[in-house]
């Protein structure tokens, strides 16, 4: 029953070996196995977006991916952005715009926004709202999050908002 196996996960540029069962969700492997508790679990059915991470640069739900499936991919979690003493550009925008309150949805928001930002195309407010519609926030009413991301995109895409 306990068919455990050792896998290697590449997380934030580092290779980690850990022992998992095939059924272990990537979110749990990151949190329990590697102690990377910045990736939060909010629903385990792919709706809330709190567990969003980047897999090879693309946003995905880590509650809907088995840890064993993540082998061979580059995983980026919120811990791979700036740390608390060195917030990255996007994290700073979130802080400046008060784009977080309780902070629980924030790592997922940041990862979704990181993917958007990396596309380096200008987006309307409507585009950003649609792109974020898979990340639920219960505190902010979203305005400040949209403002932070809009400004980050405007300043990096070379185009106006």
């Amino acid at each position: 029953m306990l068919n455990r196996r050792t896998i290697t996960l590449n997380v934030n540029g580092e290779a980690h070996e850990l022992e998992v069962e095939p059924r272990h969700l990537l979110a749990d492997a990151l949190r329990e196995g590697l102690g990377l508790t910045g990736t939060h679990i909010g629903c385990e059915h792919g709706v809330c977006g709190a567990c969003t991470i980047l897999l090879d640069g693309e946003s995905i739900r880590s509650c809907l991916l088995l840890a064993v499936q993540a082998e061979g991919h580059e995983i980026t979690t919120v811990e791979g952005l700036g740390d608390s003493n060195h917030l990255n550009f996007l994290q700073q925008k979130f802080r400046e715009h008060h784009a977080l309150q309780c902070g629980f949805c924030t790592p997922g928001m940041l990862m979704t926004a990181t993917e958007l930002l990396n596309q380096r195309t200008s987006l309307t407010e409507r585009d950003i709202r649609d792109a974020l519609s898979g990340n639920l926030c219960r505190c902010t009413g979203y305005d400040h999050i949209i403002a932070a991301i809009s400004e980050a995109i405007a300043e990096t895409s070379g185009a106006g908002p």
Binding site: G46, G49, T52, E58, I60, R61, S133
Partner: peptide, 12 residues
């Protein structure tokens, strides 16, 4: 495709 769930779901 833009109606299929959300970005992260479409990515997988």
């Amino acid at each position: 495709m833009t109606h299929v769930a959300h970005v992260a779901i479409r990515n997988r």
